[in-house]
Amino acid sequence: MLTIAMPKGRIFEEAVELLRRADYALPPEFTESRKLVIDVPEENMRFILAKPMDVVTYVEHGVADLGIAGKDVLMEEERDVYELLDLQISRCHLAVAGLPGAKMNEIAPRVATKYPNIASTYFREQGEQVEIIRLNGSIELAPLIGLADRIVDIVSTGRTLRENGLVELERIAEVTSRLIVNPASYRLNGGDIERLVDRLAAVIPQP
């Protein structure tokens, strides 16, 4: 049996749709369930529903054979897992944003983000010394109330930024969801995983 860690929320529905297109018979009430572990005996699969940031952890530790995770999470967490497929779903990008025209504070430049690792690497690459402030959500708030000059966050339509009067300043990386695999599962359940990869690869929308 293959155990697949799925991210709750936005990516989940798109991923389920993709699996259905790949001819996996997932029950109709699948996306409405509040269960955290869902068995699909017809397909010999078990799905576990996790926070997007935690999917990589479950897969790295091998309690899930596979997982679906955003590239943002993979970049932030740098886990030892195979990244086998770009599923081309949940497209967005990582960006630096701030208030229009606002300069970086020269005395104490601060960046608020959910992605401290990505943000710190990015600004170190640019040779800028900034203080990284870790937040868990509503990152757009930080520049509005003066906690930080910049934020690093994912942007999909840009609507949240616009509605809060922020503008995108720099693009860090493109993000889509990826199929990731635990290295031991990759070695020991190679056949099952390969079939899943092939079936998914056949239905991935071309960019």
Binding site: E60, H61, G62, N182, P183, A184, S185, R187, L188
Partner: peptide, 11 residues
């Protein structure tokens, strides 16, 4: 070479 065993996610 690397060696993997069931029940352990790491080599």
């Amino acid at each position: 070479f690397e060696v993997y065993a069931e029940q352990v996610g790491f080599p």
